[in-house]
């Protein structure tokens, strides 16, 4: 930075920090529009990973990856401890009553064996098949980080969509319903 540096060169050097900062600020602006906690699934358009979960108390069969061959279905991760699951539960019951699509459940990390069945007895049971998942086996297979999460699986057993958070009528109408119709056509 001595006088021997030619002037334009020197100008450029002194401008560099500003340019660098503006680039960083641009990224920050983009970053503000995104939620860093949203983690896209890497499993979209890949076959359902293999898993086999035992049944919960009061049912006679569990839920395994092989059950997802042959028809479009939803897989919903829930637990009696999960407050947000209560929020979507009424809508899941509606879907079941309307006969829209089979919904399978993964009952995640219940504090004890009775908790899940008790919760379902109280609020209704929308699930076709339920797997008990006290050690997060099924949940890890699906790359789930929190409940509720819902996956749409096509008839070849390939995961097509993942929804994080409670399922609402809006999400259903806007995203899932059209997707399901399309998958059923194939």
């Amino acid at each position: 930075m001595s006088a021997a540096v030619s002037f334009p060169m020197k100008r450029f050097l002194f401008l560099l920090p500003l340019a660098l900062f503006l680039v960083i600020a641009g990224y920050f602006a983009m970053g503000l529009t995104r939620d860093p906690r949203v983690l896209p699934s890497v499993l979209i358009n890949t076959p359902v990973p293999e898993f086999a979960l035992p049944s919960i108390q009061g049912r006679d069969r569990g839920f395994a990856s092989t059950d997802l061959q042959g028809g479009v279905a939803l897989v919903n991760v829930f637990g009696s401890w999960c407050v947000a699951c209560r929020v979507e539960h009424g809508f899941l019951m509606q879907l079941k009553q309307r006969g829209e699509i089979p919904i399978h459940g993964i009952d995640w990390r219940e504090p004890d064996r009775e908790a899940g069945p008790r919760w379902l007895a109280k609020y209704g049971d929308p699930y076709a098949l339920i797997g008990d998942d006290p050690e997060s086996r099924g949940v890890i297979a699906f790359g789930v980080t929190g409940a509720p999460e819902t996956f749409l699986v096509d008839r070849q057993g390939v995961i097509r969509h993942k929804h994080v958070g409670p399922l609402t009528p809006e999400v259903w109408d806007r995203t899932l319903k059209p997707l399901i119709a399309e998958l059923r056509k194939q």
Partner: peptide
Amino acid sequence: YVVSRYGDF
């Protein structure tokens, strides 16, 4: 295995 479930994240 873990990466195949959750990605590089």
